[in-house]
């Protein structure tokens, strides 16, 4: 992958072209989380309907074999859509203040 921060002008691809695919996986949009909150999952309440997964604009819901596992905080922008879309009688997702977590991502 191109090292945009360290590559000099002679070797950086021209025109701002990104000459490879799938690079968004390596781009940590989690540090854009500006709302001061991040989602937290109540595992025992979750019914694995995957409404959160289909609604998340950043592919930040981690699933395995159709089971909701949790959040990929490297990419989660903290928009809260998942918490809103989790069915009213379940409400397995709560938006929690960032300072209650130890790491920023």
């Amino acid at each position: 992958m191109i090292d945009v921060i360290n590559e000099g002008w002679e070797t950086l691809p021209i025109g701002g072209v990104i000459p490879e695919g799938g690079t968004s996986a390596a781009y940590k949009t989690g540090d854009w989380r500006g709302g001061g909150k991040r989602p937290l999952l109540n595992h025992s309440a979750c019914v694995h309907c995957l409404h959160c997964w289909i609604s998340c604009p950043d592919s930040a819901i981690e699933i395995q074999e159709s089971k909701m596992l949790g959040f990929i905080y490297d990419h989660c922008k903290g928009c809260g859509i998942c918490a809103n879309e989790c069915p009213p009688l379940v409400k397995a997702i709560t938006m929690i203040a960032e300072e209650q977590f130890e790491t920023t991502l």
């Binding site: 000099g8 002008w9 950086l12 021209i14 701002g16 072209v17 990104i18 000459p19 490879e20």
Partner: peptide, 21 residues
Amino acid sequence: DNPVTFGATDLPNAYTEHKYQ
């Protein structure tokens, strides 16, 4: 076979190099 992206955001860490090119 060689997928590329044109027109992505170019942040302060590379825009200067692209202009110098």
